[in-house]
Design a binder for these strands. Sequence first.
DNA 1: ATTAATCATGCAAATGAGTTTCAATAGTGA
DNA 2: TCACTATTGAAACTCATTTGCATGATTAAT
Lengths: 151, 151
Amino acid sequence: MTETDRRIAVFESQLKGAGLRMTQQRRLILRVLAEADDHPDAKGIFTRAFAHDPTLSLSTVYRTMKVLESQGAIERHAFEDGISRYEHADQEHHDHLIDVDSGEVIEFSSDAIEELQRRIAAELGYELVRHRLELYGRKKQPARRGGRKAS
Amino acid sequence: MTETDRRIAVFESQLKGAGLRMTQQRRLILRVLAEADDHPDAKGIFTRAFAHDPTLSLSTVYRTMKVLESQGAIERHAFEDGISRYEHADQEHHDHLIDVDSGEVIEFSSDAIEELQRRIAAELGYELVRHRLELYGRKKQPARRGGRKAS
DNA sequence: ATTAATCATGCAAATGAGTTTCAATAGTGA
DNA sequence: TCACTATTGAAACTCATTTGCATGATTAAT
């Protein structure tokens, strides 16, 4: 709670600095995002926020996501289905592994892979600005004693 | 030419095996793709093919891309703008580096990064099925003798 | 507190990539 | 050549996201 409120206050001052306003809707959406531990899309955020304020509209969610993103308060990701998903940006950089069976998104980070990417870009004559890395995987079954089982 | 024709023949037999037909449109689109050395989207493919057959429709391009993809003849990629871009699949696996200034797409491959990804997935308890890796970079200026220049 | 200035909102209409419906056409095997 | 059915073009449709517009809310100044 306190942590969420601190984030909201920070965002409010960012808005102020840009000549923008802190509205009830933005506060609500920000709160929903802070409480989310997954990667909801606009509709998902709308549904959760709508429960607290049935006058909220989906356009406002989309507009708010743009503002939040431009202020660096959230990150937007589009996985294979192309739909934009969001997460708050107050955490360290990480990439995503998507479970191809369940759709579950697992976060991970690897300094080794970051470094390797930088080196590859450099070898091609480029300075790395950003990257997108998504791993799609299937849960490994724990090894079974006694070998193969009858179907 | 011969190479392209060989590819088309291979694809035709793949189609036949699936009970599908080799049409003029598919032949044309396949030819356009074989001649492309970039990563065109559906509209781009349509434009190029349309020049050879003004009766072609955009829906046919989309439909053909699905058939081609399901037969493994092409690969589909969606970079940051979310639009699907295509390339023929008769080359080794590679990832892409996108020049953030020009939009140019450079292909590269790295066994080290492939291996690292596999290891990361394994550490999380997953078997890697596929991945998406895009580097976004800016061209490095070659070092200039004499230091900074006046604007 | 009240107000003026204007940013933000809700709603509905618009967009744009991609898909689908349907009647007409064209490959394919016999 | 024929019959069968996959494929096509055109238009309608989907679905995520954006936008125009009139109204409402926030802010800084009074």
